[in-house]
Design a protein around this nucleic acid. Structure first.
Lengths: 341, 341
DNA sequence: GTGAAAGCGCTAACAA
DNA sequence: TTGTTAGCGCTTTCAC
């Protein structure tokens, strides 16, 4: 292994000089710089990460805590994760992967052993036991999602309340008077997951405000469950002509179910999804949708963390406004419906 | 921060004694052990990861390199990743997440800086440029998948050749004489991805051996692409009554397409998939399938790595035998077909 | 603009 | 069974 001492000897300078050339933390004559850089290349020198971390009290590693639980849509999580890794690398950091099933102890472990400099925590519940832990940790953290009690925490998320509302507004603007929200599996609601709850809130509030009917139901992932749920829904509320879906894996089968039930999209039934753009665009017809800006949220989380590591402040809560893109799955309410509500 | 010296002082012993109590690397009297453990708890001591890594030349971190590319099925990758993390934790290791787009340089970076002790590399291509790099690295690695030139590397994978063959055998045993393989998107084949190629090989060889027709076609992920591909296939080979699918995301839409084309599963068309069990079980009808043992492969990869870190040898290539589970999607060939081949 | 040297917190000889 | 101490390779004061 080539050490900084080897480089110093080879370049005929002190080890501190090599260190400073590499970090740029003090001014070095161009001549010395070049000599050192040449030696670095000649010897193939790589700074030892542990030694550097020990001396500088910085590991240049961020922790990323991902959920492993049921009902989460995996591709979206991967988008978050890759955005976090990619952005971290831009700032010369690496990412340590933790699974949520290590629990609050896992966070303490990596933080208190100085394995990492900061943490990104995904899949935050409304009453998240990790909140108190993160508040006490001697290092910055950013939550993707936000708990009820978010004081002293830094949180980033899509504004799901606004997202739910914008779906209602879009459909109401098209003349629909009876709407339903097909949500995540009930386990996700029972876990008090923030995004699911908040979409529901936004949906209900907007329905009330617009004076339209807004019913909500969870939905499991199997084809049979989807079929049963939708049949039940249309049985109970035959006037429904607008559907909001927040549940990526059921989107394909749902289109199927509607076809099987003889409801054309969008002629008989308008559909707006809360999902990744590529999923919306892959369907037939393409889906009007509110996008989940996973890349932006992941990148933003890391940027906030870096800012905090540099000693600056960042906003406590960043809510990204939703963007609804109208595509082929939403259209004017069928005529008969205007009075049916 | 509480250091080992604080603990030693508090317990009235030498720092080395504390170290040895914690590592168990030498015999300590029960009495001293308890005193030290009490002090550790009383002070809330956590060993500093960098200091430990620097002194012991072991970071206790494994690198996991995941692909970010098109055509990979994300949920399966997540299964690998979580199996790797979970197993690593069982052996008191953490996992550093790298994306494949850092390329061979990324591997060298984390290895030569001693950020990690060993590497798990996923999504290996037949001619993988990382093979030579991994061979030269001063630390063990395990590949999930295997390249053409695998000498000196440790590889673990499902035996995809056998998987492709077992699908053919299953269908041939049921009397089917004309089969098709609906594969991954063509980009995956063009990348010379091992698992896709090998399934194809196994499929073709078995078809030949069984004396049945075996045609193969890649398939993209959009609904339209699936529809077109299948129509074309059945146009060119009207006698086809057995389908093998290696392409998870198209499974749902494919069932749809078959329904739309008026082919009942399994009465008119038998279907066997190479996919995760839960995906197979979620369909209607449930799919006969060869499972992708992601958990086992991920766990096995880490176990091999730990073995190597301990200085023992492991087999160069571990191929897990495929398991085919017959479910509702395969049945006897339709009568007319027995002579149609 | 550069060098010397004192740590960072731990492990593992070596010594007793 | 336990203690003493020399590093591990780097960063960063302090001194010039």
């Amino acid at each position: 292994m080539v050490t900084i001492a080897d480089v110093a000897r080879h370049a005929g300078v002190a080890t501190s000089t090599v260190s400073y050339v590499l970090s740029g933390k003090r001014t070095i004559s161009t001549d010395t710089q070049e000599r050192v850089q040449r030696s670095v290349r000649a010897l193939g020198y790589r700074p030892n990460a542990s030694a550097r971390a020990l001396a500088s009290q910085r590991s240049n590693v961020l922790a990323l805590v991902i959920p492993l639980r049921t009902g989460m849509h995996v591709p979206v999580m991967m988008q978050f994760a890759t955005a976090v890794v990619t952005t971290a690398r831009r700032f010369d950091h690496d990412v340590l992967l933790l699974t949520a099933d290590e629990g609050p102890d896992g966070l303490e472990r990596v933080a208190q052993s100085s394995l990492v400099d900061a943490l990104v925590v995904m899949d935050i519940e409304l009453h998240d036991e990790r909140g108190p832990v993160l508040r006490e940790l001697p290092m910055p953290s950013v939550l993707i999602g936000y708990p009820d009690e978010a004081d002293g925490l830094t949180c980033i998320d899509l504004d799901f309340v606004a997202a739910g509302a914008s779906c209602v507004d879009h459909l109401a603007d098209l003349g629909h008077r009876s709407l339903a929200l097909l949500g995540t599996p009930s386990a996700v609601y029972e876990r008090q997951t923030g995004f699911a709850q908040r979409t529901l809130t936004g949906f209900a509030e907007a329905a009330e405000r617009r004076g339209v009917l807004g019913v909500e139901t969870p939905c499991e992932h199997t084809f049979d469950a989807i079929l049963t749920t939708v049949e039940q829904l249309l049985d109970d509320h035959p006037g429904i002509t607008g559907l909001v879906v927040q549940n990526e894996p059921i989107i394909g089968p749902l289109l199927d179910v509607l076809r099987r039930l003889g409801r054309r999209v969008p002629e008989d039934m308008s559909l707006v999804a809360i999902c990744a753009d590529d999923v919306a665009e892959r369907q037939v017809p393409q889906l009007s949708s509110v996008t989940i800006p996973a890349e932006r949220i992941g990148a933003q989380a890391v940027e906030s963390l870096i800012t905090k590591l540099e000693g600056s402040d960042v906003p406590g809560l960043t809510l990204l406004p939703p963007t609804l893109t109208a595509r082929g799955s939403t259209g004017p309410a069928p005529h008969g419906d205007l009075t049916t509500a």
